[in-house]
Simulated scan of single mutants.
Amino acid sequence: MDIQWFPGHMTKTKRQLLEQLKWVDVIIETGDARLPLSSRNPLLRELLGAKPKLLVLNKADLADEDQTGKWLKKLEQEGPVLAVSASTGAGMKKIIPMLEELMAEKWQKLAEKGIKKPIRVMVVGIPNTGKSTIINTLTGRAQARTGNKPGVTRGSQWLRIHGRIELLDTPGMLWPKFDDQIIGRKLAASGAVRDEVFDLEELAQWLIAWLQTNYQGALNKYYKTEQEEINLETIGKERGCLISGGRVDTLKAAQIFFREFRSAKIARATLDRLE
């Protein structure tokens, strides 16, 4: 299964990022704690250059806690990183102090020149990593549009979140080609790619097999079955996805399976694993 998705507005977003970078002091890069590596756009690393950056891994409440701890230790070698949950608020209070720490040296130099200015922060990341939810949590009110589907944020806007901090929200940006199709599958499984652009049933079978290997017993426990091999037929029967003749509607079963996986009902699973 070949997963490629690069809507036209993504090209425009890349151009906007290059234009806006000169006005920005610090970068917040949002990622998905379930995909600490795969949810980071390699194009962003090239575009952002040497700007001070804080990596915020959102949706930590959906990820494997043990894996998150291992990834934080690894990623701290690159620079400041936080694991947060914008939906529950966990870890969010640490963001502003870390931004202030990143700006402390520049503020000092400006103060020596008699200049007082706010930190200007750009928020970047691939679709559906929760950028707008993070911004809304920081501002305390819904100033940026949010949604559960990728690509909701279309334009860019400055938002004052603190006496000395302004945020620039930007649309999410995927890269034009997934060189590693496993990364494409992981992103699709997490919801970063629209379900309409890939074979949902085929991806579901791949993810079911992956879960049986990496989270043994989780599917059996959740779907209340002792079957050694679990598939969409198993899930469909358990969820009542039956059509004429007693056959299973495997597409409906796949849709239900992904809803339950993405909300961590089956397991708090991290798709990028460090052993």
Results as ranks from 00 to 15, higher is better:
T88W: 02
E76S: 15
R273N: 08
P176S: 04
H162V: 04
T153V: 09
R34Y: 03
K252D: 00
A188G: 08
L242W: 05
Q108I: 03
R15V: 03
M122Q: 05
E202C: 00
Y223N: 04
D180K: 12
Q157S: 11
G114V: 02
L167R: 09
R15T: 11
K265H: 11
I161W: 00
Q77A: 13
T11H: 08
T30K: 03
T225D: 04
S244I: 06
A144Y: 01
L35M: 13
Q181R: 09
I115S: 06
L110Q: 12
T137I: 06
P36I: 00
K131G: 06
R164S: 06
L242K: 01
Q181I: 12
M10V: 09
K53M: 13
I95G: 03
K149E: 07
E228P: 02
M10G: 08
D2C: 00
D64R: 01
G155M: 04
K237G: 03
R141Y: 08
I256W: 04
L48Y: 01
L211Q: 02
N220Q: 14
G49T: 06
G125N: 03
V81E: 01
S244R: 13
W210R: 06
G163S: 13
E19C: 06
A264Y: 09
G184L: 07
I208A: 06
Q181T: 10
K74R: 15
I126A: 03
L211P: 12
A90D: 07
G8K: 11
K113G: 02
E228D: 12
T129E: 00
G155W: 09
L274M: 04
E228T: 14
V81H: 02
G114Y: 03
E101V: 03
W210F: 08
R154C: 01
L18A: 15
G79L: 06
E226C: 10
V197E: 09
T13W: 07
M98S: 13
I183T: 14
K109H: 11
W175E: 14
E65V: 03
G191E: 13
I235V: 02
I161L: 05
K252C: 01
G69A: 05
K14E: 09
K237F: 01
T250S: 06
M103E: 05
L37A: 13
Q227P: 04
I28E: 03
Q16E: 11
I161Y: 02
H162S: 14
E238I: 12
L48S: 01
S190K: 05
I208G: 02
Q143Y: 13
H162D: 14
Y215W: 05
A50T: 11
K51F: 09
R185N: 10
M103Y: 14
G140V: 07
I235S: 02
M173G: 04
M103A: 07
D64N: 08
R141C: 10
S38N: 07
E78C: 03
V193D: 11
E76A: 14
P80M: 09
